[in-house]
Amino acid sequence: MDWLGQYNYYVVFFLMMTGFYVVVARGNLVKKIVGLNIFQSSVFLLYISMAKVEHGTAPIVLADGTVYSNPLPHVLILTAIVVGVATTALGLALVVRIKEAYGTVEEDEIHDQDEPA
């Protein structure tokens, strides 16, 4: 089996797990958002990879083209990117507010401040 032929899926799942690990393991709220972004980007790559049709051209109607890549996943991922941007913006806005309220963006320090209350 030509397992190297699917290298982009290896990249996708490597990125996915990297991002997921960063979200889980990091205590810094900004770094968690970065991890979340890596995690979401891997999904964008997953969709774009599946859209590729071998020997297909860009999905624009040309006189000499007969085989086209599937444009639908690209469109879906445009939507997902917008959603990802919105999530990142909201997440960072929350981090700013948290920094104002607590004076820190480290999870354990925030936790310590709330413990006595």
Partner: peptide, 11 residues
């Protein structure tokens, strides 16, 4: 703490 709750929920 609503802020941290919202952040946690977001993640």
């Amino acid at each position: 703490r609503a802020l941290t709750a919202a952040y946690q929920y977001l993640i």
